[in-house]
Nucleic acid binder design. Structure first.
Length: 303
RNA sequence: GGUGUCGUAGCUCAGUUGGUAGAGCAACGGACUGAAAAUCCGUGUGUCACUGGUUCAAUUCCAGUCGACACCA
């Protein structure tokens, strides 16, 4: 296999494990830049609740895809894939190594393996299908998909409205079956990919999550969420740390309860992330304290 | 001190007219190609407070003990 000499070093792991610091240290060793793959740190209005890198950290290494969007913008994985590839193209002009760090598995995989190219559905179609779901329930969506694409119906998680809605909107938009258009193979990339997973023993990770949530409150999470109250219906704000504070503002729960809920929901999110990263054996795992081990592992790049 | 109610899963509580028990939440596991910090699926983990008694059989009935709460002194 041809070796391009260009490397994308992916640093993935559950939330709060310490990806930011490791990414910065590795980026400095390679004198390169960091691409964030964190689907909530994209939004400029969401800072405290997403634990974005702080000003000091951002000053040490150039970060991309942090706060480049507004919560009012439309965005999706495919756009991310294309934008990152474009950016990598220019970064690899100057660097042999680029770091991509984040916790959004789907977004990371879209960059590493690609995602099929589908036309965007018209907003009216999305609204129409959503309306059917709300009025007639999931069974109606199941019936529609069975009609349009029985092959996908046979394999889809048919209790998951999001999956059904997506398949239906693709069928309607393209006039072809969703299943016919899904490829099973990865896109070729003209750079090498090295995947590093960061993890900690469960109790330690959960402890860090608890401390970080407490810190978010100290840093003013409630204020940040209050300022976003008018936009609570936006998808970007359907996010751990924001939903719970909305409930507190609504006086449905106490602040103490909201904080506990955020911690609980963040722990479950971390578990889901680990499940995603462990789907394949592509990651080599380290603890965040093993910077030296990670560095020596990455020395394979220098050969 | 007396009377009453209660004691069941990590938590809140159902339930068994006597045949060793189940919901929600939590926890744990998983799925996931354009909302992904989203969305969805699966799993019960238990000395039914303790000790005796009645019974073929007690978590269930009876007695006592302990604990919690309420009321009365």
């Amino acid at each position: 296999m041809r070796n391009s000499g260009k490397y994308l070093v992916v640093i993935a792991g559950p939330t709060a494990v310490g990806k930011t610091d490791i990414a910065i240290q590795i980026a400095r060793k390679f004198d390169t830049e960091i691409i964030s793959a964190d689907s909530r740190q994209f939004y400029c209005e969401m800072t405290i609740g997403t634990a974005k890198p702080d000003a000091m950290q951002l000053a040490q290494v150039k970060h991309h895809f942090i706060g480049q969007l507004s919560i009012h913008d439309y965005y999706n994985v495919s756009i991310f894939e294309n934008q990152v590839l474009e950016l990598l193209n220019s970064l690899f002009q100057m660097h042999d190594v680029v770091i991509m760090a984040g916790g959004s598995g789907l977004y990371i995989d879209a960059v590493c393996q690609g995602i099929d190219d589908f036309p965007d559905p018209k907003p009216e179609l999305r609204k129409y299908l959503k309306g059917i779901y709300l009025d007639e329930g999931i069974v109606k969506l199941q019936e529609m998909l069975l009609q349009l694409d029985p092959e996908y119906y046979a394999v889809v998680d048919f209790q998951n409205p999001n999956r059904l809605l997506r398949a239906l909107e693709v069928c309607h938009t393209t006039g072809r079956k969703y299943s016919e258009q899904r490829s099973n193979h990865s896109k070729m990339r003209d750079f090498e990919i090295v995947r590093i997973g960061l993890n900690l023993p469960r109790p330690e990770l959960f402890n860090r999550i608890g401390l970080r949530v407490d810190q978010m409150i100290v840093n003013g999470l409630v204020q940040e969420v209050k300022s976003l109250l008018p936009f609570r219906h936006l998808n970007a704000l359907n996010t751990v740390g924001y939903k719970e504070i909305f409930e507190y503002i609504d006086l449905e729960i106490t602040l103490e309860q909201a904080i506990e809920d955020i911690k609980t929901h963040t722990r479950r999110y971390a578990k889901r992330q680990l499940t995603w990263f462990n789907r394949t054996n592509e990651y080599t795992w380290f603890e965040p304290s093993q910077l030296n081990e990670i560095t020596s592992y990455l020395s394979i790049i220098h050969k």
